[in-house]
Design a protein around this nucleic acid. Structure first.
Lengths: 248, 248
DNA sequence: AACGCCGAGTGGTCCGACCACTGTGCAGCA
DNA sequence: TGCTGCACAGTGGTCGGACCACTCGGCGTT
């Protein structure tokens, strides 16, 4: 008997709930039966149902509203790739280099597409973000500098019109990663270079020039990558802390 | 109390466990205190601790061994991106096109790098896999055809030597996705084209020609992408995004 | 008609008990 | 002496019930 595999109850429950979604018994945005009902229906304890729900919530498939019920998400890529962020939170430093290398593959391509697809309004908003970013940095107060840098790149990628791409890119460029890359290394003159990169990227977008967009984006990521590589050895391996309070 | 935000206990526990890892109290591969100990230490119930552990397990940070204890994983990218696969399991069909578009960005780049880095042994194993794939398809038995197709591409990407890239690519090319793309559409003559693509890619790798590798890989993914696009309409819209983003 | 209160129902948390599995050390055997 | 095998203690896995915190809709007041 090869048989004899004991599937954990919680795991089995996960499959059953996924099945409910696959078969269409509950569709996206729709409400699931109550924990107590599911418990009775599957013949398992409520605690096990809760663990299953926790798993699917972490995976971005379900969404729990206290006092209101459990709902299936829209199942859009940004829902399902939400958990992606841990990568840049707990990974050892050398992995950050790998992450940047992956960004060097997708961000230029995305920027090139954005050059062809971005609307005037998109470009204006990207420009505004860049203005604010430079204002902040000029005022020598590195407050949310990273947040706007992030916003700049994300908005560009979003212009490519591919939600999956946007979500993957978001996972590879979390605030935590940015923080870890620049931790304790403000200025050093590289900020000016980065701003220049940003301006060139924006120009390429305004020119509707995909090739220029690709090239400038590549150069930008490459600059960060090289900077990080040269500064990694001096700090040694570490796992960053992360008291990240969720916003929206 | 200025405090007004009520953080769920389980969520807080997740942060506390992550902190234990961040501070180095427990390192990769090491064992965590028992659920009961953590329960006492954090002043929360064992059930809540379990939910927190479930979350971190889903994220690939922890690993549970029944009867032996809870361990921190190696925190390698393939651990942390394991959950990635759900994307291609529950996503609506249109998302599959987006996924392929992302693959079109990273797979050619990865193949180009592989052309420069693959060892002789790598190339031989890739070649063998291709032989088996063609054997299977020629025998008109589409059994594990998909598995070998997957293996072929994954092995190439692995040659790029970037674990993060490998993990991301794996998430974007799961068996489930392959299955969904080709479901019920064996042959149709496209199989021959795909094999030809594969051979060309392998030739480029053997020639150590990154540009050729990039071009052939792009052509290959593009072929799949176009095929899928032309076959998606025939099945009609499945779970497409809906305009009902209203709150109750 | 508009506002505000309240209660039923939902998820959130806790407790204590028992089951299933693992690893280890001791006892028994060869 | 050396190995085998079993029992035990400790761990995660599951269960049931109880109570708390929150949401929401309906009912009453104004």
């Amino acid at each position: 008997m090869i048989e004899g595999v004991r599937t954990p109850v919680a795991q089995r429950t996960v499959e059953q709930i996924k099945a409910m979604i696959s078969t269409g018994e509950v569709g996206p945005q729709q409400r699931l039966p109550t924990e107590r009902d599911l418990s009775a229906r599957f013949g398992v304890s409520r605690g096990s149902v809760r663990e299953a729900i926790r798993i699917l919530t972490t995976l971005g498939v379900l969404e729990v509203r206290h006092g209101a019920g459990v709902y299936v998400t829209a199942l859009r890529p940004d829902d399902l790739l939400e958990a992606f962020g841990v990568l840049s939170e707990v990974s050892p430093d050398p992995t950050l280099l790998e992450v940047l290398q992956v960004r060097r593959m997708i961000e230029p391509a995305a920027t090139a597409i954005a050059a062809a697809r971005a609307t005037e309004e998109d470009l204006n908003r990207i420009g505004e973000m860049l203005d604010r970013l430079e204002d902040i940095d000029r005022s020598a107060e590195p407050g949310d500098s990273g947040a706007f840098d992030l916003g700049f790149h994300r908005r560009i990628v979003a212009c490519a019109g591919n939600a999956t791409l946007t979500a993957v890119h978001a996972g590879l460029s979390s605030p935590t990663l940015n923080e870890r890359v620049w931790a304790g290394h403000d200025a050093e003159g590289i900020a000016r270079d980065l701003h220049e990169d940003h301006r060139r990227i924006l120009e390429a977008l305004r020119d509707r020039d995909p090739e220029a967009a690709r090239a400038t984006a590549t150069a930008h990521v490459l600059r960060v990558e090289r900077w990080l590589r040269s500064h990694l050895r001096s700090v040694g391996p570490s796992l960053d802390a992360n008291p990240s309070a969720e916003g929206p």
